[in-house]
Simulated scan of single mutants.
Amino acid sequence: MRSLTRRTALTAAAATAALSLTLTACGSDDGGSGGHSGHDSTKTSASASASAPSGRHNKADVSFAQGMIPHHRQAVEMAGLAASRASSSQVKKLAADIKKAQDPEIRTMSGWLEAWGEDVPEAMPGMDHSQHEGMPGMMSSKDMEELKKASGAAFDTAFLKLMVQHHQGAVEMAGTEKRKGAYGPAKTMADDIIKTQSEEITVLNKLLGKG
């Protein structure tokens, strides 16, 4: 009788243990599924964050970069003419400074657009200036052709006058970015453009005898 009672107790204990394991397994399946789903969601979110450009940007930032790149390219092209056409050493130095400052900014803004999945304005030999003539301060194709034909003192005067207009346009565009943009680095660049090109406008005007 004692042996029978012991066997009955062992059988009940085994059944209870089996039931417990089954419930645990079921709970593990449900919890595991939910936990796995949550893990995937976290991984996906982290992956998306890693692939996205750092910092929030908006349409104004995109417009700023897409507009300022060709604007800078024209200034660099104008500055490149000074090396062989200008007669004033001051004009040549100023042109070299403009090229040195704006070339890296073109590369930086191109990188932003690529990171944002936006179109980068194409750089073409013999830049077509007509498509950008409505942009603040941009030279027309006619202006650029006349500048290319000039040399000596005539080039110096034309270069200085055109670059004042060009810089004023860049300052205007940078001001729009400061007011409407959201991307920190773009707003910082806009600050730099306003500061640097405003100072250069003062120098340009002095060389023109206006300051």
Rank of each mutant, 00 (worst) to 15 (best):
residue 87 S to C: 08
residue 126 G to M: 13
residue 131 Q to F: 10
residue 30 D to G: 06
residue 88 S to N: 01
residue 93 K to A: 13
residue 88 S to A: 00
residue 39 H to K: 01
residue 34 G to I: 11
residue 159 F to N: 07
residue 130 S to A: 12
residue 39 H to S: 07
residue 46 A to P: 02
residue 29 D to K: 05
residue 63 S to D: 14
residue 71 H to C: 03
residue 90 Q to M: 12
residue 46 A to S: 08
residue 104 P to T: 13
residue 87 S to K: 14
residue 75 A to P: 00
residue 29 D to Q: 09
residue 134 G to R: 00
residue 64 F to L: 10
residue 83 A to Q: 13
residue 147 L to T: 11
residue 150 A to H: 05
residue 126 G to P: 11
residue 134 G to V: 06
residue 74 Q to D: 11
residue 96 A to W: 01
residue 126 G to W: 07
residue 57 H to A: 09
residue 95 A to N: 03
residue 78 M to L: 06
residue 65 A to V: 05
residue 154 A to T: 08
residue 73 R to P: 07
residue 79 A to P: 06
residue 47 S to L: 14
residue 71 H to Q: 08
residue 68 M to Y: 05
residue 96 A to D: 07
residue 39 H to A: 01
residue 151 S to D: 06
residue 60 A to F: 04
residue 115 A to F: 01
residue 50 A to R: 03
residue 41 S to A: 14
residue 141 S to V: 07
residue 144 M to K: 06
residue 52 A to D: 09
residue 100 K to R: 12
residue 82 A to I: 09
residue 88 S to L: 01
residue 87 S to L: 09
residue 146 E to G: 08
residue 39 H to C: 10
residue 82 A to R: 14
residue 29 D to H: 05
residue 74 Q to V: 03
residue 118 E to Q: 10
residue 103 D to A: 14
residue 85 R to N: 09
residue 49 S to M: 07
residue 120 V to Q: 02
residue 48 A to Y: 10
residue 42 T to F: 12
residue 118 E to M: 12
residue 149 K to P: 06
residue 160 L to T: 04
residue 71 H to S: 04
residue 74 Q to I: 04
residue 130 S to F: 00
residue 75 A to I: 03
residue 41 S to M: 13
residue 123 A to V: 12
residue 149 K to Q: 14
residue 129 H to G: 00
residue 139 M to W: 12
residue 78 M to T: 08
residue 123 A to H: 08
residue 134 G to W: 03
residue 130 S to C: 05
residue 52 A to Q: 08
residue 88 S to M: 00
residue 129 H to N: 05
residue 136 P to E: 03
residue 159 F to M: 09
residue 65 A to C: 10
residue 96 A to T: 02
residue 28 S to Q: 10
residue 35 G to H: 04
residue 163 M to N: 09
residue 109 M to N: 11
residue 58 N to D: 07
residue 136 P to Q: 02
residue 78 M to N: 06
residue 67 G to S: 11
residue 150 A to F: 02
residue 136 P to H: 03
residue 71 H to D: 01
residue 95 A to P: 05
residue 134 G to N: 12
residue 50 A to W: 05
residue 148 K to V: 05
residue 77 E to S: 15
residue 163 M to H: 01
residue 161 K to W: 15
residue 165 Q to Y: 07
residue 106 I to S: 05
residue 121 P to D: 13
residue 86 A to N: 03
residue 117 G to E: 09
residue 29 D to C: 14
residue 51 S to M: 00
residue 156 D to T: 03
residue 155 F to K: 06
residue 88 S to D: 07
residue 165 Q to E: 15
residue 147 L to A: 13
residue 148 K to R: 15
residue 66 Q to V: 11
